[in-house]
Design a protein around this nucleic acid. Structure first.
Lengths: 197, 197
DNA sequence: CTGTAAAAGTTGAGCCGTTGCACTTTTTGA
DNA sequence: TCAAAAAGTGCAACGGCTCAACTTTTACAG
């Protein structure tokens, strides 16, 4: 009984799912700021306190756990195609992962969802924090990839800028072009001091 | 009577000052999160409603108006010493302005103040927003300085990264070294596509 | 099975920052 | 002198979030 532990966790997961579903439904329908946590709790037929036992904040109702995010980020650097520079690998990863932290990327209303996140300050900031939280891990991965000391400032700077580039990219009407330009800048600055790819 | 308008504005300014002083005192004494707006209002002998007539939020009690900030930022680019690159000018400006958005830079407890801002998430985020709010203006100033179109992506990227570099710099134990490294990266990436300084 | 104690879940009351409203007082300028 | 503007006040309320207490469910010993 180590993995699919009992019938209890199932109910718990179900309640959690009901909350996430109700929240997405209401938020997309009326707008994030026009829906209170009480509305979500009522729609899922639980109390507000119960809601906060499942999700640490109102914003978290919309995002899934970010555990994989860090691993994927580190892997993008470590397992990059041979000959590909680290900034290039990061540009690619960020453009791809852009659509991956949603609750359900397969939902037909996915476009509405991303628009809501982009236009709601609270959600935008929350998503941004989910990324920057892994800055230290990314800096370490970069340092390992180039054989630099683990607290190397150049690696820390690249990690910082690469993650912050996301904000610039997402709010631009042509994300792909913005990414190219932003990472071209990092690419040149980076290879100047790290000749090896 | 255009400038030192009457005795009324004096009282208003005085009330405002009382609030800022009381807030700083209490925050440094007990810690930002351990003091409620009610405590500050009581200490300044006004009602909570009045407090919010003077300051738009609890965080704003600690920072002065940021009107000059944008002008100084633009000026740092426009009036930089001849031969000095834009990234270099920005590095210098950010290192200098680092200590300038406080209420009273002359206060003997200034070190405690900066430490509090650095360690209190709400204040750290607020200060960060004060900076990034002027990103568009900075991007425009850069574009003008190099004769690029006003929506040039490279200029926007440099503006974005330069302002975001602040976070990296402030949390590092040796801000000066961190600034050198971060802006060296930007410098190389920037001059690669903008040969003229 | 049964009894029991920990764990999980739930609840209502309440804190904190913030806003709106109705009202009094002060200042200003005609 | 009078009226309009502005500053201040108290109160009630809202939204996000937490706490202490209570009820259910599960796990396990006998």
């Amino acid at each position: 009984m180590t993995e699919p532990t009992g019938r209890r966790e199932r109910k718990k997961a179900q309640t959690r799912q009901s909350l996430a579903d109700a929240a997405l439904e209401l938020f997309l329908d009326r707008g994030y700021d026009q829906v209170g946590v009480k509305d979500v709790a009522d729609a899922a037929d639980v109390s507000v306190t119960t809601l906060f036992k499942h999700f640490p904040s109102k914003e978290a109702l919309v995002f899934d756990q970010d555990d994989d995010l860090e691993a994927a980020l580190v892997a993008a650097v470590r397992d990059r195609a041979p000959g590909r520079s680290i900034p290039q690998a990061l540009r690619e990863h960020i453009l791809l992962a852009r659509t991956q932290l949603a609750v359900h990327a397969t939902d037909p209303r996915f476009a509405d969802f991303t628009r809501m996140v982009r236009e709601t300050p609270a959600l935008r900031d929350y998503a941004h924090r989910m990324w920057t939280r892994h800055e230290a891990a990314l800096a370490l991965a970069i340092a390992e990839a180039v054989g630099a000391p683990e607290d190397d400032l150049g690696c820390a700077a690249l990690a910082h800028f690469a993650l912050e580039a996301r904000g610039l990219i997402l709010r631009h009407p042509e994300p792909h072009r913005a990414a190219d330009e932003a990472f071209a800048l990092l690419e040149h600055g980076w290879t100047a001091s790290h000749p090896g790819s």
